[in-house]
Simulated scan of single mutants.
Amino acid sequence: MTQEIHGTVADGFEGVREEFAAFVAGERPDYEGQLCAYVQGRKVVDLWSGTEADALYGVFSSTKGAAYLVVALLVQDGTLELDRKVTYYWPEFGAEGKGDLTLRDLLAHRAGVVGTDTGFSLAELADDRQLAERLADQRPFWRPGTAFGYHALVSGALTGEVVRRATGRTLQEIYQERIRTPYGLDFHLGLPAPQEPRFRSTQPMTPTPDQQTLLDATPTGPHTLTSIAFNRNATEPTDLASLPNMPLLRAKGPASVGGVASARGLAGMYAAAISGVGEQAPLLKPDTVAEFGQFHSVGYDLVARAHKSFGLGFQTTADTWHPFLGAGTIGHSGASGSQSFADPWSGLAYGYTRRRFAFPGGAAPENNRLAQAIHRAALAH
Rank of each mutant, 00 (worst) to 15 (best):
A255D: 08
G41A: 09
A273T: 02
G259F: 03
G58Y: 03
L215C: 08
E52N: 12
A10F: 01
L284A: 10
V9L: 00
G293K: 07
G115V: 03
R200N: 03
A342T: 01
F324H: 04
S297N: 13
D127G: 03
T226Y: 12
P219D: 08
L69H: 00
T316A: 12
D216L: 11
L122Y: 13
F60K: 03
A193Y: 07
L302N: 12
G361D: 07
N231I: 02
L370H: 05
P247Q: 05
A123R: 15
P254L: 01
L325T: 06
L153Q: 03
E81H: 15
R17N: 05
Q176E: 15
V71F: 03
A152M: 05
Y352Q: 11
T238Q: 12
R84S: 15
V298G: 09
Q372Y: 11
E19N: 09
W142F: 13
R84M: 10
Q203D: 13
I5H: 14
H332C: 05
P286K: 13
Q76E: 15
Y57M: 00
A95Y: 06
S155Y: 09
G259V: 00
Q212E: 14
L171F: 06
W48C: 00
V75G: 11
S256Q: 06
E124H: 11
V113P: 13
R198P: 10
S62C: 09
D100M: 15
D46P: 12
P247A: 01
A152D: 11
E52K: 10
T329Y: 05
T102D: 09
G184M: 06
G112H: 07
N233K: 04
F230A: 12
A229L: 08
T2Q: 14
E366Q: 14
F13W: 00
A166G: 09
L249C: 10
L215T: 05
D83H: 12
A126T: 13
F314A: 06
R232Y: 15
P282K: 14
